[in-house]
Design a protein around this nucleic acid. Structure first.
Lengths: 127, 127
DNA sequence: GCCTAGATGAGAATAGTGTATCATTATCAG
DNA sequence: CTGATAATGATACACTATTCTCATCTAGGC
């Protein structure tokens, strides 16, 4: 998988912009759907290719939740975690993080990263 | 998916026992591999069926980590989370949990559950 | 405007998981 | 011991997510 040699196209612009403007992580399908409104006939392959390139550039990051398709979001949001609504299945960012994680593991274990995902109902679905 | 009408077989015993004795969550393949040592010719279908029944009984619980096959572990361990070694890919239990999660989400959101997964090197791989 | 290599889109191909089918085997009540 | 029927195992099938192929299109240097 090599870096895309760069050429400005409307499909890439559309995808980049959708990702840039979204306040929550989007799956490939959500991306396709949203970007297809701007570029007619947009295909999945292009979405995958562009997402791959953006990941390579470090412009976006993957958000993985078990049993769910991978979602992507802007990389410049700082450390945060996610919340998935059990009703509408959308994923939201949540600010902040727990910092006493180190204390949880046995002494010889080395922690490099961590994921925290909360599940429940989002504001819209909770009423 | 209905409850299995119960009949004692060596394959079920083997699977139940492997799960019972394992100190860490096991995937279907790990289960198959481990139980096949006791019951020759054990098939995947039986593993899936048995796991399904045990889940239904509440005897085991699913442990899901993004991009990884689902693992299963005894349900009577109490609340805890998991650690995955980035080298050997095994998953370990970690005791304890962060309790100030409620403070992280916007006020209208309702939290029902949460997952915390740490990644790094296990004691064996860290040296 | 022309040309070429990069980019695209449609669909085929792949990979990983889990379920359904069905002939055979084995449990266990009587 | 025997028979009814649940359980098994091999395999086909279904699904989803992602990659590949390749003919066609197009951005952009000249």
């Amino acid at each position: 998988m090599k870096t895309q040699p760069a050429r400005k196209t409307k499909q890439r612009d559309a995808l980049r912009e959708v990702l840039e403007r979204s306040e929550r992580p989007l799956s490939v399908n959500e991306l396709l759907e949203a970007a297809a409104k701007r570029v007619d006939g947009l295909g999945v392959a292009t979405v995958y290719r562009t997402v791959g390139a953006l990941l390579g550039d470090g412009a976006i990051e993957a958000v993985e939740i078990p049993g769910e398709p991978v979602r992507y979001e802007r990389a410049n949001k700082g450390h945060h975690h996610h919340f998935q609504c059990e009703k509408c299945a959308r994923v939201f960012d949540i600010a902040g993080c727990l910092e006493n994680l180190r204390t949880l593991v046995p002494p010889k274990f080395r922690i490099r990263t961590h994921d925290v995902t909360l599940y429940g109902l989002c504001a819209a679905c909770a009423r």
